[in-house]
Design a protein around this nucleic acid. Structure first.
Length: 536
DNA sequence: AACGCACCCAACCGCGGCTTT
DNA sequence: TAAAGCCGCGGTTGGGTGCGT
């Protein structure tokens, strides 16, 4: 009540009034002054500006002491930085600022302060607010999070990093290169993944696997740097990477349904992370998150109902700006749904459940370990899901979902306006176009109607003679890309980073489990990449 | 006009890192 | 070396506003 009274009175003390001179009503207990919260008044602003003019920025806690301003130092700093600081831009973001923001976010992730350094006159808070609203807006509109040019740039840089990564073996890279080179897209991806740990527990701390692997093996820095966060050389905010959603044992109240909070922003980002730049269906990523919410919160497999519910929540009038991502009339299933299906498999469920009670909730490696352990004890699941999709029955959920992925992706490629549509990419990137000649004229545009592409075309595409670039073009747009592509050499058919995973895993898990892990990841990769259009 | 809803954004909160004592 | 204080960052919240019904 006293706080409210202060707010209402909106009294600001004279500049020279020290805290000890305040009326007793402004004290809380013996020593603590009741500091004001809420909106700043112009008088308070004047006092703060005056103080900063005299004393400069910093030492914010002294503001209250010197001016009697009933604001904590934090609040003063925030007010100054976000509103009172000179040369601040106000108003809507210009087109160039929007573009730059998207580009920076693609590179940095949610590093608002760093982004603000590249946007003169804009504050981190402003950028953050802008981005969050932008995410929601674009998600509602069914637009990709990043503009096509940013997506393309990310793709090209990723391609470049993949193609050159192996050539830098052992070379020490300049820190600037670690910060600014093309590998940053990986960081963005992994930032997003970390952001989405609640959605995909299995990708949790993916970067750490690489880091561990490199530390253990002394691998070349190119591999290492591809996963090094560009912002902080050391681990920051451990909680972000050590509290996956599944850690329900340590759940806070609001974590009971973590996806409710993150579905808007992060599900789209996870799709972005997987290369799904263009949306499949407005709100579909949210649907995916909802699926996770259902499947992971109660352990039941229920994908259809949330999907329907979400569709109902998003009437067609919410698709106003389909200038970039016009999609087929029948929305294909989400990639995440496929993953969801996989996670909802008995194996995955048991994994999740066991993970919940496990003291090891440290990330993908653990998840894979549990997965491997479970799979090793139930080979049927393993073979069904990872290496034997050709024998799957139509009723097999996992395989049908994988098939859905293929359909989805071909629609993606066939979509002339999709940022990752084959046409747009090939038109904009001559190198890719040259490598994708075998694709020309064979794009299964038929899939826009929801049908499968012709298998003979697919066979041609996926012959062993195809270049990695073409395959990479495809695999980067795959949901499993992050889970598998970096471990699987598409040209040779081997796990190119097998030594990383195997050795790192061996070091951590022991030979048996590491072998299971290797087989599992290889199996998934092999199936995905060698039989991408395997008929059911 | 009233109501509900969604959006926007300023401000707060909690945490971790750095510096000082 | 440890503790305390300060600062900055990122996530979240809540109030104001506009729009549609």
């Amino acid at each position: 009540m006293r706080q409210m009274k202060i707010d209402i009175e909106d009294e600001v003390l004279p500049n020279d009034m020290s805290g000890t001179q305040l009326n007793d009503e402004n004290y809380e207990g013996g020593a603590g002054i009741v500091l004001k919260k809420g909106p700043w008044t112009s008088t308070e602003d004047d006092i703060l500006v005056d103080y900063v003019k005299k004393h400069g920025e910093g030492n914010w806690n002294a503001v209250q002491k010197h001016t009697g301003l009933l604001r904590c130092g934090k609040s003063c700093r925030l007010r100054w930085a976000n509103h009172l600081r000179p040369n601040l831009k106000k108003g809507a973001f210009a087109a160039e600022e929007e573009r730059l923001t998207a580009e920076l976010h693609a590179k940095m992730g949610n590093k608002w302060a760093r982004m603000a350094a590249h946007l003169p006159g804009r504050t981190d808070n402003e950028i953050k607010n802008y981005w969050n609203t932008r995410i929601k807006r674009r998600q509602r509109a069914g637009l990709p999070l990043y503009p096509p040019e940013v997506s393309l740039q990310a793709l090209q840089e990723s391609q470049h990093s993949q193609s050159t990564g192996g050539l830098n073996g052992g070379d020490k890279m300049h820190p600037d290169f670690l910060q600014k080179n093309s590998y940053e897209i990986h960081d963005a991806i992994f930032d997003s993944l970390k952001d989405n740990q609640g959605i995909l527990p299995y990708v949790h701390e993916l970067s750490d696997i690489s880091v561990y692997g490199n530390k253990l093996k002394g691998l070349d820095s190119s591999q290492y740097c591809s996963f090094v966060p560009p912002t902080s050389p050391k681990r920051k905010r451990l909680k972000e990477s050590t509290i996956p959603f599944i850690d329900s044992c340590a759940m806070k109240k609001k974590d009971l349904y973590p996806f409710d909070q993150i579905q808007d922003n992060n599900s789209d980002k996870i799709a972005q992370s997987f290369g799904m730049q263009a949306p499949l269906d407005p709100g579909l990523s949210s649907h995916s998150s909802m699926c996770y919410s259902h499947s992971l919160s109660n352990g039941n497999s229920s994908t259809s109902k949330p999907y329907e519910a979400m569709k109902l929540e998003l009437p067609s009038l919410q698709y106003p700006e389909l200038d970039l991502g016009s999609w087929g009339s029948s929305p294909p299933p989400s990639l995440l749904e496929s993953v969801d299906d996989f996670l909802q498999s008995p194996t995955a469920i048991s994994t999740l459940e066991s993970d919940c009670s496990s003291p090891q909730n440290s990330g993908l490696l653990d998840a894979l370990l549990y997965q491997a352990k479970t799979m090793s004890s139930s080979k049927n699941h393993c073979s069904d899901k990872s290496s034997n999709s050709s024998t799957a029955t139509p009723g097999d959920r996992a395989d049908s979902s994988i098939l859905n992925v293929y359909e989805t992706e071909w629609e993606d490629y066939a979509d002339p306006v999709s940022p990752f549509g084959a046409t747009s990419i090939l038109n904009e990137c001559p190198a890719l176009r040259a490598n994708a000649n075998s694709l020309n004229g064979q794009l299964p545009v038929q899939t826009l109607t929801g049908n499968l592409p012709k298998l003979e075309s697919v066979d041609q595409v996926w012959t062993p003679n195809n270049e990695n670039l073409t395959l990479s073009l495809l695999n980067i747009t795959r949901p499993d890309f992050l889970l598998a592509s970096d471990w699987y050499d598409l040209g040779s058919g081997h796990c190119k980073n097998q030594t990383i995973t195997t050795d790192a895993a061996t070091a951590f898990l022991g030979d048996d489990l590491a072998t299971d892990l290797k087989h599992m990841t290889a199996g998934i990769s092999k199936t995905m990449f060698e039989n991408p259009f395997q008929p059911l």
